[in-house]
Design a protein around this nucleic acid. Structure first.
Lengths: 192, 192
DNA sequence: CCTACCGATCGGTAGG
DNA sequence: CCTACCGATCGGTAGG
């Protein structure tokens, strides 16, 4: 049984950076959660910043893959948009990645400001790409009111950003009610 | 000319806590921005936590006052809702309080979790109260589609939460476009 | 309001 | 993978 402490460190760091933040998580915290002593971390990583970089890289791959696997159905824009919304909400509620992603996109630790901004726009392009396909279907679809693609995209991203933030504030049952109500008004606004 | 360093300390702390966060702001940072040495802070406050508590208290008073002064017009629900939305957006863009409020509601420093949660619900009640008056006007108003009050409230709060978050990500010109597009879809959803 | 100092904790290194 | 240690920085105190 190989222990593979390098993977363990990344896993623990993902969790602790998400819960407490980068600066508030010490290498001692990480090491003791893994079951080793602090200096042993340096066998696997060049330092604390190196751990963060590795964790963030894994996170982006995980997220991009998850959205890339979303199956869209031809000529079903309303259905497709709902699927994207549901995938977003479920990842938000069920993955450790979401917590760290929320933290670092909102309040990036100083040394990583540029890196995180870059990753943020990379991730947003993935979502924007999916929205583009859906819009292409929807613009000729009689069921949708007239919106430009930037309006369509902006309104959807604002909806998910609102949901994203509220997931942080409310208990799950209240959160679900709010999510449903917001979706209802949004889809009433978008579709005839 | 009285220097009034106690007020200076609060002002500087509001700004630094907002920009860098509570844990990442040192008493040395605060003191040197005020133009004094670190131990002199203890003439005005019992410690770092005491400064934070005082700043947060002032912040809540400022915000509650600002929303309390919002003038609503009888039987103009759509107009009133837009005013509330605009007040929210303008405070978001123009006050230092908004940055600190974003930070601490989203990722409260450990020692203040309970205090901040309490203040959060207190502030939300202020907004919910305003939305209640607007809904009372709107529910008999033929221009609004049928939504329950919880749906109405949830959808509005999700909209402003989305805007709140996006203000952080985008430059002002892009932010304004997104804000306008989101409001457009939202109001199409709410009103006939 | 200051200088001088405290114990604790941080990321990181030496050396095995 | 460990023990033992480093210089820097933290919040806070003594004493004037």
């Amino acid at each position: 049984m190989k222990t593979n402490n390098k993977e363990k460190i990344k896993k623990v760091a993902l969790s602790l950076f998400g819960q407490k933040g980068y600066e508030e998580t010490s290498l001692h915290d990480i090491a003791s959660a893994v079951g080793i002593k602090k200096p042993s971390i340096y066998n696997h990583f060049a330092g604390k910043e190196d751990i963060f970089t590795a964790v963030l890289e894994d996170l982006l791959i995980t997220e991009t893959t998850a959205y890339g696997e979303l199956k869209l159905r031809k000529d079903e824009p309303a259905e497709n948009l709902k699927r994207l919304f549901d995938l977003f909400c479920s990842r938000l509620m069920n993955t450790e990645e979401a917590l760290l992603w929320k933290r670092v996109t909102f309040f990036p630790p100083e040394p990583f400001k540029d890196l995180i901004e870059e990753k943020f726009f990379e991730f947003e392009e993935t979502i924007t790409g999916i929205l583009h396909s859906i819009y292409e279907d929807a613009k000729d679809f009689s069921g949708m009111k007239h919106f430009t693609e930037p309006e369509f995209t902006a309104a959807f991203l604002c909806l998910v950003d609102g949901v994203f933030l509220e997931h942080h504030y409310y208990r799950e049952d209240i959160f679900r009610q709010r999510m449903d109500a917001s979706w209802k008004v949004f889809s009433f606004g978008l579709f005839k």
